[in-house]
């Protein structure tokens, strides 16, 4: 039981960056803008957050900077793919390169630690929060440990990520803004005919993408770890993209996909090299590749069908 709760606890921690980045991608792709630059935005956000947190000693200022950096990168992507009508995939690739290069280049030039930022003290990080009565209720069988170990004791960004799931659902499916956002992703010409600006709707969607990627990056650098390291996102942006597709572009599914991929990672860490009777040790690399393999299997149409937003990837040209 203890082991199981520990495993789930690790799952939650590991799935938070995936969840945030996948939700970020959800806003972008639902508005018709493909985004393979989630990785770069996250990395840029992580570097900004760690650099400022170490200079000011404040995790919150770090978070604000992380969001700012990711936002700037998101706006470059927006300008390239909405205003300049460029290729969205190419723009995403460019952002991944620029973020990966600049973060280490600037890190080396500012801190001289080979691209890392200095180790952050706990005061400059987001530390775990004890929810009320966690201590008192820990004695209650079954529910006690779940509440005190699994639900309580995470940092504020973890709760933010999970709160964003219903919020995203509500924004996308219950507000006028969300309706328009989804509409520009399906049929921008119709939205335009109704007198609503396609360009502005898409820009707003990408702003949210920037914010969420920034939070995801900050989580990596100033909550989960204590500082920025070279290539610290390590493909998480792409796993998030896989999770988004796996979830068929739906907010609640995105949460479950992120948790599933986080769980695979947690299993991988926990049971590395452990022999399973009858099968033998499962190679670490297979576990690491599993999210991608599952997504390809899904895309192949063997587990339901993933249909992307119709207008995704196509720059909108207003009729004259």
């Amino acid at each position: 039981m203890d082991l199981f709760i520990q495993l789930l606890d690790t799952t939650v921690r590991l799935s938070v960056p995936l969840l945030l980045a996948a939700l970020a991608g959800l806003y972008s792709e639902r508005s018709g803008i493909f985004d393979i630059g989630l990785e770069g935005k996250m990395l840029g956000g992580a570097f900004g957050a760690a650099a400022v947190a170490s200079l000011t000693g404040s995790a919150w200022l770090g978070l604000v900077t992380g969001i700012g950096v990711a936002m700037v990168l998101a706006m470059i992507h927006a300008f390239a793919s909405i205003t300049a009508r460029g290729n969205q995939i190419v723009s995403g690739v460019a952002i991944n390169f620029i973020a990966a290069g600049l973060a280490v280049l600037l890190g080396q030039s500012w801190f001289g630690l080979g691209g890392q930022t200095p180790q952050l003290p706990n005061s400059a990080r987001f530390t775990p929060i004890e929810l009320p009565f966690a201590e008192a209720l820990s004695g209650v069988p079954v529910l006690g440990p779940i509440y005190s170990d699994l639900i309580s004791g995470h940092n504020v960004l973890v709760y933010f990520a999970f709160v964003m799931v219903p919020v995203t659902w509500w924004v996308l499916f219950r507000t006028r803004f969300g309706l328009r956002l989804r509409a520009v992703g399906e049929n921008p010409a119709a939205v335009d005919t109704a007198g609503i600006s396609v360009v502005w709707a898409r820009y707003r969607a990408l702003m949210i993408t920037g914010v969420l990627c920034g939070v995801a990056g900050s989580y990596l650098a100033v909550a989960q770890s204590a500082g920025f390291g070279r290539d610290m996102t390590a493909g998480k942006g792409f796993i998030a993209l896989a999770a988004l597709i796996f979830a068929k572009w739906k907010p609640v599914n995105v949460m479950f996909a992120a948790l599933l991929f986080g769980f695979l990672e947690a299993l991988d860490i926990r049971f590395q090299g452990v022999e399973i009777p009858g099968i033998g040790a499962i190679p670490v690399q297979l576990m690491q590749a599993l999210p991608y393999i599952l997504t390809v299997v899904l895309l192949a149409g063997f587990i339901g069908k993933a249909i992307p937003p119709k207008a995704g990837g196509v720059p909108y040209v207003k009729e004259r």
């Binding site: 390239a80 793919s81 460029g86 290729n87 190419v90 690739v93 390169f97 990966a100 290069g101 280049l105």
Partner: peptide, 14 residues
């Protein structure tokens, strides 16, 4: 890597 990214951005996406 930075120059590469900028070339991809300006010569490709933009």
């Amino acid at each position: 890597i930075v120059i590469q990214g900028l070339v991809i951005l300006f010569a490709g996406a933009l």
